[in-house]
């Protein structure tokens, strides 16, 4: 996953002291950046697929946060054979398990989102959110302005309540 590739570049390489702190913060800066880029993509990009990619980026940033937090300097992979002496440093396995679960959740979300995109494309022939909104407004399935819904084009019955003879 992207999380692991970013991880290999980001976390603590420095030996100790100030460098260590800086390097640790560096990883968290990447987390914040990815989070913001993902969020910005979701808001600013009109293409639904790119919005989904932004969503993935957003989630990946959170994976990074957890993975970075699990890092223990000089720690080994937390696979501990029976009879190993106590006190050796291991990376914390719990955040990794959390990230693993979160990745599964993210994959299913992406799958559902892409399936919905396919259906939207089948129906309207576009994946641009702005064009889509225009099309839906034309067919009457989206209110023209907030709160003021025009008469749906497909409504067969003319309203009975207002006409007063």
């Amino acid at each position: 996953m992207t999380a692991s590739s970013v991880l290999s570049a980001a976390p603590v390489i420095g030996a100790s002291g100030v460098l260590d702190v800086l390097a640790t913060r560096h990883a968290y800066v990447v987390f914040a950046l990815l989070l913001c880029i993902g969020l910005y993509m979701m808001i600013a990009n009109p293409n639904l697929i790119k919005k989904l990619i932004g969503l993935n980026l957003f989630q990946t940033a959170i994976f990074l946060l957890f993975v970075v937090s699990a890092y223990v300097e000089g720690g080994a992979i937390p696979i501990i054979p029976a009879g190993t002496e106590q006190g050796a440093a291991y990376a914390s396995p719990l955040p990794h398990v959390i990230v693993l679960t979160a990745i599964v959740v993210g994959v299913s979300l992406t799958a559902v989102g892409l399936a919905l995109c396919i259906r939207i494309y089948d129906e309207y022939g576009t994946l641009r959110a702005d064009t889509l909104r225009d099309l839906m407004r034309e067919e009457g399935s989206l209110p023209a302005e907030v709160g003021q819904e025009p008469d749906a084009a497909g409504v067969a019955r003319s309203d009975g309540g207002e006409t007063n003879e």
Partner: peptide, 16 residues
């Protein structure tokens, strides 16, 4: 199509 779009909108915001 309208329900798919409503659902996708919910998916984005709900996931965030």
């Amino acid at each position: 199509g309208a329900s798919a779009y409503a659902s996708l909108k919910y998916l984005m915001l709900g996931t965030v």
